[in-house]
Simulated scan of single mutants.
Amino acid sequence: MNMVDHRFDIVDQATYRNGMSRLGTSVSVVTTLSGGKRFGFTASAVCSVSDTPATLLVCINRGSSSFPAFEGSRYFCVNTLMPGQEEISDVFGGRMPSSDRFAHGEWGDGLTGVPVLANASVSFECELTNAVDEATHRVLFGRVIDIRENEERATLLYCMRRYLRG
């Protein structure tokens, strides 16, 4: 079923991006393991779907250099960053090769072998249950199979194109 009403024009890219920049969000690094190698990207599009069963979603650009690894992976981890981890966000959001990104931060292995950031605010290890393509992105739905929380209750936030401490 197509839900688009074609009587209205769609806003242009710049207007949309400016509006979305006002939608504050937590900053996460999403990781996976593919072919024995670690891959990851910075994401601000992470959302709870349900608590029964515990399920979240994350969006990845299909043009991302990390996309092929996530396309073929069954497991992934959403590592929500803390204030002071802006460099990790920048590294995983940039054009640095995936193999070099993991030199930043302290990484361990989750239950499924996916990379888990040791001092993340919270890490959600997930099993992929569904994937939906929309426009330039793929929405990954993950059933949460493990959660690791940091005792320090702080999360790195991003709003108006800058980092905030929350």
Score class of each variant (00 low, 15 high):
residue 1 M to E: 14
residue 1 M to Y: 01
residue 1 M to Q: 00
residue 2 N to V: 05
residue 3 M to L: 06
residue 3 M to T: 13
residue 4 V to L: 15
residue 8 F to V: 08
residue 9 D to H: 13
residue 9 D to V: 08
residue 9 D to M: 11
residue 10 I to H: 14
residue 14 A to I: 12
residue 15 T to K: 09
residue 15 T to G: 07
residue 16 Y to R: 05
residue 17 R to K: 14
residue 21 S to W: 03
residue 21 S to T: 03
residue 22 R to P: 01
residue 24 G to E: 04
residue 33 L to G: 03
residue 33 L to F: 00
residue 36 G to I: 09
residue 37 K to H: 12
residue 38 R to C: 09
residue 39 F to N: 00
residue 42 T to S: 12
residue 49 V to G: 03
residue 51 D to T: 15
residue 53 P to I: 11
residue 54 A to H: 13
residue 55 T to Q: 15
residue 55 T to F: 12
residue 56 L to D: 02
residue 56 L to F: 08
residue 56 L to V: 14
residue 57 L to A: 08
residue 58 V to R: 01
residue 59 C to P: 00
residue 59 C to S: 14
residue 59 C to W: 04
residue 60 I to S: 04
residue 61 N to S: 09
residue 61 N to M: 07
residue 62 R to P: 01
residue 64 S to E: 00
residue 64 S to R: 04
residue 68 P to N: 04
residue 70 F to Q: 07
residue 75 Y to W: 15
residue 76 F to N: 03
residue 79 N to M: 02
residue 79 N to C: 14
residue 81 L to D: 07
residue 82 M to R: 15
residue 83 P to M: 11
residue 84 G to C: 12
residue 85 Q to L: 10
residue 85 Q to E: 00
residue 85 Q to T: 04
residue 86 E to Y: 09
residue 88 I to L: 13
residue 91 V to G: 05
residue 91 V to A: 05
residue 92 F to E: 06
residue 92 F to V: 02
residue 93 G to E: 02
residue 94 G to Y: 04
residue 95 R to Q: 09
residue 98 S to M: 06
residue 99 S to E: 14
residue 101 R to G: 01
residue 104 H to G: 01
residue 110 G to H: 08
residue 112 T to S: 15
residue 115 P to H: 11
residue 117 L to Q: 08
residue 118 A to G: 06
residue 119 N to C: 13
residue 123 S to H: 12
residue 126 C to Q: 05
residue 129 T to C: 07
residue 132 V to L: 12
residue 133 D to L: 10
residue 133 D to I: 12
residue 134 E to P: 02
residue 135 A to D: 14
residue 135 A to I: 07
residue 136 T to D: 15
residue 138 R to A: 10
residue 139 V to H: 02
residue 139 V to Q: 07
residue 142 G to V: 00
residue 143 R to I: 08
residue 143 R to W: 01
residue 143 R to T: 11
residue 144 V to S: 10
residue 144 V to H: 08
residue 146 D to G: 13
residue 147 I to G: 02
residue 149 E to S: 11
residue 149 E to Q: 13
residue 153 R to L: 05
residue 153 R to M: 03
residue 153 R to V: 08
residue 155 T to V: 11
residue 155 T to L: 03
residue 157 L to R: 09
residue 158 Y to F: 11
residue 158 Y to A: 01
residue 159 C to R: 15
residue 161 R to K: 10
residue 161 R to P: 02
residue 162 R to F: 01
residue 164 L to E: 12
residue 164 L to Q: 11
